[in-house]
């Protein structure tokens, strides 16, 4: 494992910890899209079914369990927690996320490395992860003001994607048989979706002002 991959995993983990911290400390999930969180839970469940079939390393297995457990915990809190669920911006979180699921499933059935149950689910999870942030970005855009923790959550998620791209570039040059175009193309699409957010995050950081997205 190279340093970029490790930093990517760590920034991914940090983003989830920030989100859990926000929900736990403020007992509020305002500004957070339940639809994006549900999509991530689905992404992890679909991709990490290989926990039962393939073993890569203790590190990989532990991280997979952490990602599945934390994403389910977040969805549970937003839907069921007596206090937290009251702060959910339901009327702003109207993205039709079922269409994303259907489109990604259709694409996975058409484009995958092998037509087996696990491989189709794996491709589906890669495609879905690429677009899962969309409901969250739409929600931020609609609410305009972004609180600190929510802004940092999205920032670290974007950093995770950027590190993974560096990781693929590194692997491309250091490994003899490195070709995983499904991951790489989807990863590039996913990172591109953050470009706009990063731009405004950088502006607010430079001006030392509150993060605001244009209407």
């Amino acid at each position: 494992m190279n340093i970029f991959r490790f930093l990517g995993d760590m920034t991914h983990l940090i983003s989830i910890l920030i989100l859990l911290l926000k929900i736990y400390a403020t007992k509020s999930c305002s500004g957070i899209s339940l639809k994006t969180q549900e999509l991530y839970a689905l992404v992890f469940l679909a991709r990490y079914l290989d926990l039962f079939t393939d073993f890569i390393s203790v590190y990989n297995s532990v991280m997979k369990v952490v990602f599945i457990a934390s994403s389910l915990a977040i969805v549970w809190c937003m839907r069921r927690h007596r206090v937290v669920r009251r702060s959910y911006d339901k009327e702003l979180d109207t993205f039709r996320h079922y269409f994303l699921v259907a489109a990604c499933l259709a694409l996975a059935l058409l484009v995958q490395e092998k037509f087996t149950f696990l491989e189709v689910l794996w491709a589906f999870s890669i495609y879905l992860e690429a677009v899962a942030i969309l409901p969250q970005l739409v929600l931020l855009q609609r609410s305009g003001n972004v609180d600190n923790l929510t802004g940092q959550y999205v920032f670290f998620l974007g950093a995770y994607r950027a590190f993974y791209i560096l990781n693929w570039i590194y692997r491309y040059f250091t490994e003899t048989h490195f070709s995983r175009w499904i991951s790489c193309v989807s990863g590039l699409v996913q990172t591109a979706l953050y470009a706009d957010f990063f731009y405004y995050y950088f502006i607010s950081w430079k001006n030392n002002s509150k993060l605001q997205l244009p209407a």
């Binding site: 995993d9 393939d54 890569i56 990989n60 990602f67 490395e113 990781n167 490195f178 995983r180 991951s183």
Partner: peptide, 10 residues
């Protein structure tokens, strides 16, 4: 790539 190492990322 060996079969079992194809999905070695998270």
């Amino acid at each position: 790539l060996p079969e079992e190492k194809r999905h070695d990322e998270l």
